[in-house]
């Protein structure tokens, strides 16, 4: 599991203990409210409290400063508390909670599985496996470990179910008789399967022998500068470019990710461009503008890298771009670069 590098606030810090203690009444109120909505779900206040306190501790550790009281209140307020109560009750084996879960979410779970799986047999296998995982077959210290115990209420239970189904499909591919790599696994599930042809090799025999050394040097400078220019971007910019170019997400799909007004990605881009949308929908054109800003930054950094780090003159930089454009036209730039 991910452990963040920046962790000024250690688990067990007295500050975290204080924050958790201060949140006690709010958690109690939340439990009472959820219990009113679902009185027959068997989930004790202690279990509910422990689950939220665990998430709250992680929330405190996710940055190098302690969260403010407002941030803690917002965190608790945003929890999908009813879903969390249901998940804990299901984890306890509560019949009524399972029935409710089955009624509310099974059709959705089946739909996700059928959408992602290649065949009906795979989909059915995954649905069965997910149900078994949700119930839990592993017993540790006399207690059955249910997958529901990993749900924290940070997102909706349906969003969480989607990831459970996705991972289950990846595991299904992993357990198939043919050994496959992690990359191959991800490429076999969902749309990833359509984008697997990244590294087609191209013969570079057409290069004239006399130019080979110089061209090789310029190509090497091009790829190194491009790599450095990309690395110098901020993480949210790199992620946007990777979503677009590597994951092949469409502009409208990226726009959906940024639609939530509280989305931190959206917040970062808006701060960068110093413009705030009036709220509501993020349009494809907005995402395109953000992409263009990223390209502008890459272009600027790329030119600087060619001149400063690679020590190329303006003329040589122009040759690099010319070569790159020519190679792009024939579709073999990166095959040539990978051979350098």
């Amino acid at each position: 599991m991910l452990r963040y590098n920046v962790r000024a606030m250690k688990e067990g810090d007295s500050q975290i203990t204080e924050i958790i203690a201060a949140a006690g009444p709010s958690i109690g109120e939340l439990y009472a409210c959820c219990k009113e909505n679902a009185p027959n779900f068997s989930c004790s206040e202690e279990q509910f409290r422990v689950s939220i306190e665990r998430s709250l501790a992680k929330f405190c550790q996710s940055a190098d400063t302690a969260p403010t009281a407002e941030e803690v209140n917002a965190f608790i307020g945003q929890l999908q508390a009813d879903d969390l109560l249901m998940a804990i009750a299901c984890s306890n084996g509560c019949e009524r909670a399972w029935w409710e879960f089955d009624q509310q979410h099974r059709p959705y779970l089946e739909r996700v599985a059928r959408h992602l799986a290649k065949t009906e047999v795979d989909a059915q296998d995954v649905i069965d496996t997910v149900y078994v995982e949700l119930y839990g077959t592993r017993v540790v210290d006399g207690e059955r470990i249910s997958k529901f115990a990993t749900y924290s209420g940070r997102g909706s239970i349906r969003g969480w179910l989607r990831t459970v189904v996705w991972h289950s499909l990846v595991d299904l591919h992993r357990s198939s008789p043919d050994e496959v790599s992690l990359d191959e696994m991800t490429e076999n599930v969902g749309e990833g399967a359509a984008h697997a042809a990244f590294l087609a090799g191209v013969d570079d025999g057409e290069l004239e022998a006399v130019d080979q050394l110089a061209e090789k040097r310029y190509r090497k400078a091009t790829i190194e500068s491009l790599s450095a220019a990309f690395a110098s971007l901020e993480p949210h910019e790199r992620l946007l470019l990777l979503y677009y170019h590597v994951e092949n997400l469409k502009l409208r799909e990226i726009a959906r990710l940024l639609e939530n007004e509280d989305s931190p990605l959206r917040g970062w881009f808006q701060r960068k461009s110093q413009t705030r949308d009036s709220g509501g929908r993020t349009h494809e054109s907005t995402v395109m503008r953000w992409l263009e800003k990223c390209y502008a930054r890459v272009l600027e950094n790329f030119s600087n890298e060619l001149s400063t780090t690679q020590g190329l003159s303006r003329e040589e930089s122009a040759i690099c771009m010319e070569l790159a454009t020519r190679d792009l036209g024939s579709g073999d730039l990166f095959a040539k670069l990978s051979a350098t």
Partner: peptide, 12 residues
């Protein structure tokens, strides 16, 4: 899942 739904705060 929470990230995709836009449910994480900026610090998370």
């Amino acid at each position: 899942a929470a990230f995709v739904e836009g449910n994480l705060s900026e610090r998370e």
